[in-house]
């Protein structure tokens, strides 16, 4: 019947699954424990990260580590009345670095490589792909004039149909994923907890 940790995991699993029946006290208790343990885990991990990526490098004489430490501390300015504006600088730095980092990926991987991959010898499939791409792009054309909107009406409607078909495929795949998650939990309950399945 497993160890105490297995029991805890099993009770938590049943508690959270009980929401499918209806909202109840058991779910509520498990939910709060889950949220609290998530917070505790994040805190421990946060301390570990600060130590590994800021304190230790600084102790080793890498003075540049001061920059992220100062930026990180600026986030706490929101707790000082009237000083909330200081939080904007680390946010701006985070956004700027993230954007700069992703530029090569967006321009090369998601744009040039993907367009180049559609240059194929014409067949029913390849033409359908090209027409589909163009119509989907036109669905997302927002700034057309009134006349332009009338012109875009049909291709964007076709684009919408194409997208709905893609969403259907996505949905099907995800149903499989969700079933796998449920199977994972059932497998845990039957095998590891109750031991009634070999």
């Amino acid at each position: 019947m497993g160890s105490i940790t297995t029991w805890m995991a099993a009770i938590g699993t049943l508690g959270l699954l009980s929401f499918a029946w209806k909202d109840n006290k058991f779910y509520s208790i498990c939910e709060h424990i889950y949220v609290a343990s998530g917070a505790a885990h994040a805190l421990v991990l946060g301390v570990k990260n600060i130590k590994a990526n800021a304190i230790i490098p600084l102790a080793e004489g890498k003075l540049l580590a001061i920059i992220p430490i100062v930026l990180g501390l600026m986030f706490y300015a929101r707790f000082i009345p009237g000083q909330m504006r200081w939080t904007r600088y680390p946010i701006a730095a985070t956004v700027g670095i993230g954007f700069g980092q992703s530029l090569p990926r967006l321009a090369s991987t998601n744009f040039v490589s993907q367009i180049r991959a559609t240059f194929k010898v014409w067949s029913f499939n390849s033409v359908l792909v090209i027409v589909g791409i163009i119509c989907v792009i036109l669905f997302f054309y927002f700034s057309a004039s009134k006349r332009g909107q009338r012109f875009l009406q049909y291709p964007s409607r076709f684009g919408r149909i194409i997208m709905m078909m893609a969403f259907g495929a996505l949905f099907g795949n995800t149903v499989m994923g969700r079933l796998s998650l449920m199977i994972g939990r059932l497998s845990f309950l039957f095998r590891d907890w109750l031991g009634i399945v070999g």
């Binding site: 959270l16 498990c30 939910e31 889950y34 949220v35 343990s37 998530g38 917070a39 885990h41 994040a42």
Partner: peptide
């Protein structure tokens, strides 16, 4: 709520 994905969802 929580930075843990499903703890956030449960909350």
């Amino acid at each position: 709520i929580s930075s843990e994905q499903f703890a956030y969802a449960a909350g």
